[in-house]
Every structure is written in C-alpha cells, then in structure tokens.
Design a protein around this nucleic acid. Structure first.
Length: 415
RNA sequence: GGAGGGUUAGCCUAAUUGGUAAGGCGGCGGAUUUGAAAUCCGCUGGGUCAUAGGGCCCUUGGGGGUUCGAGUCCCUCACCCUCCGCCA
C-alpha cells in the first residue's frame, strides 16, 4: 500500500497505473481529502501545543502548592475543541486509508499493451495417432479419481491414486531438489494457514477475499500460494543488507475457491480447488530486482526443460497483471491432448509494493529501506502433470515417465 | 480450555505515590591520525508547517477510557513466552 504522501508526490504515476490496470479510483478526490487532513493536523497540533504548555504550568503550580483551578477550567474548552477536530481527522484518515488499500501497483514501463510471446522452447511434436487428453488417459489407468475426491470434499478436489500419487510426489521432490541443490534456494516448510495481516501484506486482501478459504473460527485463511507464507516470513522486520538476496523455495498445497469459474476451463486437472506447487520467493535489493526477475524465470524454465516439455514464455500486457505485480512472465506448457497452452508458472516482480504493505525493510547504513519482493511458481503440478501425461503418451495409451523423474518414481512407465 | 509473564526507536535495556520517554550497542558525519584502531564531539523513527535557518506535533504492540496531564491506572483486541490440561 502506498502512503498518502507517496500518492501526493507521484500522482501522475499512480493515475496512469490505475488506468492501465483498469481500476476506478478517484485520485483527485483522495488528494482533496489529504489537503483537508493536513489542515486539520496543523489545527490539532496547535491545540495540543497549548494543552502541553498549560499542563506544564499546572504541574509546576501544584508542586508548589498553588491553586491551578482557573487554568484547569480553561483547558476544558481546549479539550472539547481537540476532540471535535480529532474525530473529523480520524474519520477522514479512515476514508483515505480505505482508498489507499485498493490502489494497485503500477506496471513497470517495459510492460507492453499487447501480450507478447518472447520465447518458445522444445518441439510441439506431431503424433502419428490422435492424442488423448489427460483425463481420458488417467481414468483409463485409474491414477486419478475425481468421484472419490468429490465424496470427500466436493467437485474439483482431485484425488491421485497409485502411480498417479507417486508421480505427483516425484514431481514435487524433483522440483524442490533442483531449486535447492542447483539454484541455491533455501528450503522452507511453512504453515499452510495464514492470518489476515499476511494476506494483506502480499496483496491477496482486500481484492481476492472471495477466492480464498477462510476459517472464521480462528481468523485464518488457507494458503492460496506459498508466496504468502514465504514472503511474510519477514513481515515487520528488518533484513541485513549483506544478506540480500534471500532465496526461499517451498512446497505447499494451495487452496483456491475459484469462485464463479466453473465451466469449460475446469476439465480434469485444469482448474482445481486444491493443488500442489513448489514456489520460489526472493527478497532483493531494489537495484537488482529486475536482474533477479530474469534469473527467477530461468530457474522456473529449467524445470520444464529437464522434464522435456515444450513451453513458451509470455510477457503479460499491463491489463493482465495482478493487483500487486509490476511485471509478470507466464510460462505455458503445451498440452497436445487438450490442444492448447497451459499456464504452469507466473513469475513476477512486485518491487516494493508488498514490502510496503507488509513492512519488510533492509538496513542500509543508519537507515532502512523497503526491499523488493519477487516470486514465481517453480512450478505448479496439476498442469505439469497434464503436460507429462499428454506429451509422453504412447499409441497404446501407456505413458513414459521422463528420465529425470524415474529415480523419484521408481518406475519408468504407466501402467 | 485454564493460570501466569511479556511487547519501548535498527537492536538491547531503564523510567519513586501518574508530572510530559533515560541510557547502551550499532550506524552515519566530524575532530585527531601517514593510514587504521582507540578516543572525543554531533546526529539517529514518523507527520506537518516553512524558500530557508528552524518551529510544532506524534511515536512505549493495536484500539478505547479515566485525568489538566498516562509507558505508568482501567477496559478490550492481537501476537509471543512459560506452566497445567487435552491430544496425532
């Protein structure tokens, strides 16, 4: 969240940002309120000054045993005026604050108007037969059981069975090991629930409230992405400058209500309420954050390269960016059975937007400054699972396991 | 679920019956020095007004109350720690 002062001093940038992200917020009205707010502060400061002076005199008189009644009575009037002004100020600040919460992070200048595919990797191969979609294949092998999932939790809660469960677990372990051993991330296993402050800090709240599962009894939300716990590890803290960049990776289950999104997109593992994801999070010095974004993208891409899955990288246009992101790349895997590209990773630089909301700073000399936070999926499993099933299917319906996963699965094909 | 303890600035730590936040460390600047260490001096968060020197106000986890005046007293909420109970 931007401070009102920042908005005042960067009004044009903020206005352009909300225009690009197609949000409707009246910044001019906000600035008018700010002006009134500052007048009130001056007024209140002056009254308090009077009050403090008088308090000092009363204290002295009382200590010397003198009568201070008259002055004390005069102070009653000051007190009344203070209270009135303070109430108006409080109301005004409440309104200002409420508006500030909804101001999105402006896109980085390099973010385009139109979506652009900046890279394609691997070969979209032609099958000598009609490729089947993953749901058909998985049902045939009994490795996915949606009806059982529905009995337990409802529709679109996947249940993996047998080799399907093993393949899922293998994917997670393979990705974690890659990021830990080769890319130098520190492994974290965080809580899967997080409080409201965390959700506000990373920007899920207030905008995405309806998309999250809330446990009302405890005021806790189910983790929608490991970005939340990982980034909030340093909420309200100060990091040593020499420790930057900090790189964390974690596996978590992710829970999303996906309110109102039932429809064509929900076939099989396409869009589910609970899924697994290995996440990458970085805390960066502001000067380096765009270099860190590029290397984060490479770290995520390498997962797909090693799995031998054809993918492309898309630079999102500015009206597709999330509330908190300044720049985002999506990585999309080719699914021959479904005949389309599937988003498996979203890699973003939030600059200091989340750091402001969560108050995450680093110490530089005798002052503190907000860090830049970044994250990327490294990667989400369901659509990667789809990619493997559909790309590695054979004419007889069996599925070859990619080489790099075999030491984790212990088998090289399904069935 | 029960009982108790705690939260003060980047960090650590004080503050007789309520009297207007004291120190230390770290850091920054300066003096001294061939250089460094040591030593000494100054500064240290936020807001607001002002062209400026600077003024004023706020800041003891959040919110509210009592009072001329609250770190201190009262209420409430959050989080942390310890113990008891329950429990995979």
């Amino acid at each position: 969240m931007f401070s009102i002062r920042y908005v005042r001093e960067n009004a044009q940038k903020i206005k352009e940002g909300i225009r690009k992200k197609k949000v409707e917020i009246d910044i001019d009205l906000l600035l008018q309120k700010d002006e009134r707010r500052r007048k009130l502060i001056t007024e209140i400061d002056n009254l308090r000054h009077e009050q403090k002076d008088a308090g000092r005199i009363i204290g002295e008189k009382k200590q010397q045993g003198e009568d201070a009644e008259e002055l004390i009575n005069q102070m009653q009037e000051i007190k009344r005026r203070l209270k009135a002004s303070e109430e108006e100020l409080k109301k005004l600040e409440g309104e200002i604050n409420e508006t500030l919460k909804w101001i999105p992070n402006p896109p980085h200048p390099s973010v385009p108007v139109e979506e652009s595919v900046i890279k394609e990797w691997g070969e979209v191969k032609e099958f000598p037969f009609e490729p089947k979609d993953h749901l058909t294949l998985c049902n045939a092998h009994g490795i996915l059981d949606f009806p059982a999932g529905a009995r337990i939790a409802g529709s679109n809660f996947p249940l993996y069975r047998g080799k399907g469960a093993k393949l899922e677990r293998a994917l997670i372990n393979f990705m974690l090991d890659l990021h830990i051993k080769k890319h130098g991330y520190t492994e974290i296993f965080p809580p899967f629930l997080a409080n409201e402050k965390c959700m506000f800090g990373t920007g899920q709240l207030p905008k995405l409230k309806e998309d999250m599962y809330l446990i009302e009894q405890d005021g806790l939300y189910l983790n929608p992405t490991a970005e939340v716990p990982l980034t909030n590890m340093y909420r309200e803290s100060v990091i040593d400058e020499k420790d930057l960049p900090i790189k964390f990776t974690a596996y978590t289950a992710c829970f999303r209500r996906e309110a109102g999104s039932y429809g064509k997109e929900t076939k099989g593992l396409m869009r589910v309420h609970q899924f697994n994801k290995v996440e990458l999070v970085k805390f960066s010095h502001p000067e380096n954050s765009y270099n860190e974004l590029e290397s984060l993208l490479q770290d995520a891409e390498e997962v797909l390269q090693l799995l031998g899955l054809p993918y492309r990288v898309v630079l999102l246009p500015y009206d597709d960016l999330s509330f908190a992101s300044a720049k985002t790349y999506d990585i999309e895997v080719w699914a021959p059975g479904l005949g389309r590209w599937l988003e498996v990773s979203s890699v973003s630089n939030f600059e200091d937007f989340q750091a402001r909301r969560a108050n995450i700073r680093f110490r530089s000399g005798n002052r503190t400054e907000f860090v830049h936070t970044l994250n990327g999926s490294g990667v989400a499993t369901p659509r990667t699972f789809i990619g493997i099933i559909e790309n590695y299917q054979q004419e007889d319906g069996s599925i070859i396991i990619p080489e790099v996963l075999r030491k984790y699965t212990g088998f090289d094909r399904i069935p």
